[in-house]
Computed example of a mutant assay.
Amino acid sequence: MSKKPNSKLKALRVEHGYTQIDLAKKIGMPVSTYIRKENGYTEFTVSEIQKYALYLIKQQKKFFYRQSYQMYNRNSIKT
């Protein structure tokens, strides 16, 4: 079987600072299965890709919310 690694998903994972173990746990699959899928031995299902994307979106929202909250607190006028 020829494999075609999921380099875009791997790049996205690495860009966000996650390990294969982190994402396997977050999307609810065994680490060995995640590694096989990321390395292209088996394909991700649509449902798994949706979980992957939703997790990263949630993490981005937390980041931006935290940044906005910190900016608000710095700019607040204390009386």
Rank of each mutant, 00 (worst) to 15 (best):
S2K: 09
P5H: 06
P5L: 02
N6D: 11
L9I: 02
K10S: 14
A11F: 05
L12W: 02
R13N: 11
E15M: 03
G17V: 05
Y18A: 00
T19I: 01
Q20K: 08
Q20D: 04
D22Y: 00
D22M: 01
D22G: 01
L23C: 05
A24S: 10
K25D: 06
K25H: 02
M29T: 04
P30L: 01
V31Y: 00
V31E: 09
S32A: 15
S32Y: 06
T33K: 01
Y34F: 15
I35E: 01
I35M: 14
R36M: 15
R36C: 11
K37C: 05
E38H: 10
G40M: 09
Y41R: 12
Y41D: 02
Y41S: 07
T42W: 10
E43S: 10
F44P: 04
T45A: 12
V46Q: 07
V46Y: 03
S47D: 15
I49T: 14
I49Q: 11
Q50I: 11
Q50F: 06
Q50P: 02
Q50H: 05
A53Q: 15
A53C: 04
L54W: 07
Y55P: 03
L56C: 01
I57T: 07
I57K: 15
K58H: 14
Q59R: 08
Q59N: 07
Q59P: 01
Q60M: 04
K61Q: 15
K62C: 12
F63P: 00
F64V: 14
R66D: 14
R66I: 01
R66K: 14
Q67V: 00
S68M: 06
Y69W: 09
Q70S: 11
M71S: 04
M71F: 13
M71T: 05
Y72Q: 07
N73I: 14
N75G: 12
S76G: 02
T79D: 13
T79C: 06
